[in-house]
Design a protein around this nucleic acid. Structure first.
Length: 672
DNA sequence: GTCATTCCTG
DNA sequence: CAGGAATGAC
């Protein structure tokens, strides 16, 4: 990582400074230095377009692709809902209404005339119709005042209109042939009163009815009408009551659901698990919200029986939504049980599963492609084909040490699971001499290590394969939660391939939150946390961190913890005997660092107080030229040919700051 | 143990 | 400046 090197590879004066204060010197081969210097040089010359940054963008691209896949998936799920679900949550009410409308065809006047309709569009239509009915009722109103738009209804309206006309004519003829009666007078009175006391629509309706009926029945008709009105009012009242009850019930159920869903959601957040179920829950949640939004309006359109049926369906759905998060393992059972999902529900579940599998495959493929596309000699050796995914550690020989240790390291999600993205980055290095710190954990194993076959070799591959997800998940969920968002860290996706299957039996798995993925990291986290609390940063060279910024002291503290961890963790004891060497921990530490700060920009952002030195570029250039000239001149045949160059470089050294010369420099830095 | 690098001394 | 010793990483 050129950028990384440029940061990690301090200038010589810094190195010497380190020597002066008792820190180990940075060591690198001449060629490594050459490569590093070259990389650094190019990086410095082209800070915008370093290889790391390119690679980082690739990583981001892959990440973005994943999120796109998810987005697509969700979108598709929604469209599936809309297209195929009869009770698809978001559209359940409207679907019901549609069915209702189609089924009834406006032939259930009792409910439709109950005046409960208040759907937005229908309200609008109602208004229009109410207004227009005063002028030209037949255009819009059915005999029951129900506004309809279908051709059928229009025809029916015309028919009614004609019949009314005919009745009126018959009425007139009948009136002419009979002498006026009280009833008629009453009728006339009523006719006179009608315009004032009854709405135009009502009077129109009354007129038609009166015209249809013999005059002798007018009186009883009036009573009938008023009785019916009363009845309707009562019915409406009851319906309203019922509706309110149902809505109340619905809200309660939804609240319940939200509670459960929220807890599930937070769990998911915690372990980075964007599982199928959580996605399903999201969809159901959306449905539920939608239902809430619509229920008040659209439910009113249903007749009581239908309303109850559909409310039951809704409740059933709510219950399903509630049960889902709890019944992770029982989905199949439920799907095939007597009370299983609707066929469409099954279909959705199946589709979701399928899509998730596809998405996962795509994601993995993408990452693997990115990885495979880069020329690397180490790759085939580093990632042998996975054969036994759940292989346990085979601690039966020294040859397996590497794998054993490595697997343990990968189970050690919090700290030392190598982020495969980083690993990819490492193997993408143009030159094998461009050694980065994180590299050795996965590459450059000698043949004896690679020859280790069987379960260990197979098992070796699996965690690496899944680590794009699990490793980052481990990081995101660990105590090492970043005080700031890191794009690479914020990939909340849990591998469906299964949690690491490490056989590490933690001695102090105290945390109750031990979920599959995080279980093995718990003990470590506990230790790390307590360690953090109990011990001061080993070299707090900088002021305490602010809330958002991560100070060097914190990092150093963490690094110190990591270092100390090699002494306190179980791995230093029993695990060490099984093949985990201090080297592994060192490498893990470096990987941890690299994972956290994968690019120079990251480092710049979070270590803004560290400045890679003023004359760095100049010195790097001169050094580069010296090496180049020496090689061109063939001086490198001399075993000590670099010494001359060291001397040249040495002259370019800047003064070591006084503070570092002091024997108490650490303390002084502490008090700064 | 080997190697690279740095330090010391003549 | 050259050579050897010391140091630390591997």
């Amino acid at each position: 990582m050129p950028d990384h090197d440029s940061t990690a590879l301090l200038s010589r004066q810094t190195k010497r400074r380190r020597v002066d204060i008792g820190v180990k010197r940075t060591v690198g081969t001449a060629s490594a230095f050459f490569a590093k210097a070259r990389a650094t040089f190019f990086s410095a010359m082209n800070p915008q377009g370093s290889e790391q940054d390119v690679e980082y963008s690739v990583v981001q691209h892959a990440d973005g692709e994943k999120s796109n896949v998810l987005r697509k998936l969700l979108k598709r799920a929604n469209s599936y809902e809309d297209a195929m679900m009869p009770f698809p949550g978001a559209t359940i009410i409207s679907q019901l209404l549609k069915n209702n409308m189609n089924k009834n065809g406006g032939t259930e006047p009792s409910f439709q005339a109950s005046g409960l309709s208040s759907t937005g569009s229908e309200v609008h239509q109602e208004d229009i119709c109410s207004n227009s009915s005063r002028d030209s009722p037949p255009e819009c109103l059915s005999p029951f005042g129900r506004p309809t738009m279908s051709q059928f209804d229009m025809d029916r309206l015309c028919d009614e209109h004609l019949r009314a006309k005919r009745a009126r004519v018959e009425n007139i003829i009948r009136g002419m042939s009979h002498s006026p009666s009280v009833a008629l007078r009453g009728n006339e009175n009523e006719r006179e009163m009608a315009p004032q006391s009854v709405s135009p629509r009502e009077s129109y309706r009354e007129n038609k009815r009166k015209q249809k009926l013999p005059q002798q029945q007018q009186q009883s008709f009036q009573q009938l009408v008023s009785a019916r009105k009363e009845q309707k009012r009562e019915e409406r009242r009851q319906l309203k009551q019922q509706l309110e009850d149902m809505q109340k019930q619905l809200r309660q159920l939804q609240e319940k659901f939200y509670q459960i869903y929220d807890s599930t959601d937070s769990e998911n957040d915690e372990d980075g698990n964007l599982s199928e179920d959580s996605m399903r829950s999201e969809i159901l949640d959306a449905r539920a919200q939608d239902s809430v939004g619509r229920s008040d309006n659209e439910m009113c359109e249903l007749d009581p029986g239908q309303f109850i049926d559909r409310a039951r369906a809704l409740i059933r759905e709510q219950e399903m939504a509630e049960n889902k998060p709890k019944r992770e393992g029982n989905n199949k059972e439920r799907d095939h049980g007597p009370n299983s999902l609707q066929p469409e529900g099954k279909h959705l579940a199946e589709t979701l599963k399928q899509e998730l599998n596809t998405a996962m495959s795509q994601v993995v493929d993408t990452v693997v492609k990115v990885f495979a596309a880069k020329p690397s000699r180490q790759v085939p050796q580093v990632f042998p084909p996975l054969q036994i995914p759940q292989a346990r550690f085979a601690v039966n020989g020294e040859n397996h040490n590497f794998h054993t240790a490595n697997q343990r390291l990968q189970c050690f999600g919090d700290v030392i699971i190598p982020n495969p993205l980083d690993t990819f980055g490492n193997v993408q290095m143009p030159s094998s001499t461009d050694q980065t710190e994180a590299l050795p954990l996965v590459v450059r194993k000698n043949s004896s290590d690679q020859s280790a076959s069987g379960p260990a070799a197979g098992g070796h591959h699996q965690p690496l394969h899944q680590s794009p997800l699990s490793a980052t998940a481990g990081f995101t969920t660990s105590t090492f939660r970043h005080p700031f968002p890191l794009p690479l860290m914020a990939y909340p996706f849990q591998s469906p391939l299964g949690a690491p299957s490490g056989s590490f039996s933690g001695k102090d798995r105290a945390s109750p939150e031990s979920l599959d993925l995080t279980r093995d990291t718990t003990s470590l986290r506990t230790k790390m946390s307590s360690h953090h609390l109990s011990h001061h940063p080993c070299s707090p060279a900088h002021p305490p961190s602010t809330a958002e910024g991560l100070s060097l002291s914190l990092i150093k503290s963490e690094c110190g913890d990591l270092q100390d961890m090699s002494e306190i963790s179980p791995y230093s004891g029993s695990a060490m005997q099984e093949g985990l060497s201090p080297n592994h921990l060192k490498k893990a530490k470096l990987m941890f660092f690299y994972t956290r700060y994968p690019s120079s920009n990251m480092l710049k952002t979070y270590f803004s107080d560290v400045k890679v030195p003023e004359r760095f570029l100049e010195v790097a250039q001169i050094t580069l030229r010296e090496f180049f000239n020496a090689i061109i001149a063939g001086k490198d045949v001399d075993p000590s040919w670099k010494k001359a160059i060291y001397k040249v470089i040495c002259k370019l050294d800047s003064e070591v700051p006084e503070i570092f010369k002091s024997p108490n420099c650490l303390q002084e830095l502490l008090h700064e």
